[in-house]
Amino acid sequence: MDEVEITDVDDLPQMEKAPIKNQDLNFLSFSAGDLLSEYGWYLLAVTVLIYLLIQHLSKRRSRVPSSPPAQTPQDAVLVARRQEGMEAARRKMQEDLDTKAAIFREKQAQQEQEKRRQKIEIWESMQLGKSHKGTTKHPQTTEETSSSTAASKPKTDKKSLRSADYNPLTGQGGSCSWRPGRRGPSSGG
């Protein structure tokens, strides 16, 4: 057996003992808490601004195409057909508009000629000493005359509606013989 020598701990030379440090991460939580309590709102604002800047740049990047797509000959033919179709549709719409405008101008010219003719007739009748009111009336068609006579009410004699024995001064024969006067202050002064 080997001999083992036992020495007393107090007999060992004294070494400078370093203070024992925490081996866990508590010190980190205290320093992070101090940092957040001092600069928390500033850190939050900077974080939000950085996030918004990243979002803005990503949207801008997605809008700008990196390179124009190469057109195939088939796409060019398709685009040409669409443009020709649109041009044909525009021409057709313009022709329709032109025909409608021509019809409208013809109607306007006819109305102006009719007005001129009526004015000439009125002037000629005035020269002859006749009244112009009789000449301006247009003859009605049979449908217009039948509808106008049906719409007019026959005249009735207003005196025949009154009964002979009704007299408002006597209070007989009516639904009410006396009505109260208007409420409120009297007018006058």
Rank of each mutant, 00 (worst) to 15 (best):
D2A: 15
E5R: 04
I6R: 06
D10M: 14
E16D: 15
E16T: 13
K17S: 03
K21N: 10
K21H: 14
K21P: 02
N22M: 05
D24E: 11
F30P: 00
S31L: 14
G33C: 02
G33L: 08
D34C: 07
D34W: 03
L36M: 12
S37H: 10
S37D: 15
Y42A: 13
T47H: 07
Y51N: 06
Q55F: 12
H56N: 08
L57Q: 05
K59S: 07
R61Y: 13
S62G: 11
A70V: 15
Q71S: 14
Q71P: 04
T72M: 02
D75V: 11
A76T: 11
V77C: 00
V77Y: 09
V79M: 13
V79D: 07
R82I: 14
Q83C: 04
E84T: 07
E84G: 05
A88C: 00
R90H: 06
K92S: 13
E95H: 06
D96I: 13
D96F: 10
L97A: 14
A101W: 04
E106R: 03
Q113Y: 00
K115Q: 07
R116P: 00
Q118W: 03
K119Q: 12
I120E: 14
W123M: 06
W123A: 15
E124N: 06
E124F: 07
Q127C: 08
Q127L: 15
Q127N: 06
G129R: 00
G129V: 01
G129Y: 00
K130I: 14
K130Q: 12
S131N: 08
H132I: 05
T136D: 09
H138P: 03
Q140A: 10
T141F: 00
T142I: 09
E144M: 03
T145D: 09
S146Q: 07
S146E: 08
T149L: 12
K153M: 08
K155I: 12
D157E: 05
D157H: 01
A164Q: 06
N167R: 01
G171P: 00
Q172L: 12
G174A: 10
G174E: 01
S175M: 09
C176A: 10
C176E: 06
S177K: 11
S177R: 07
S187D: 09
G189H: 10
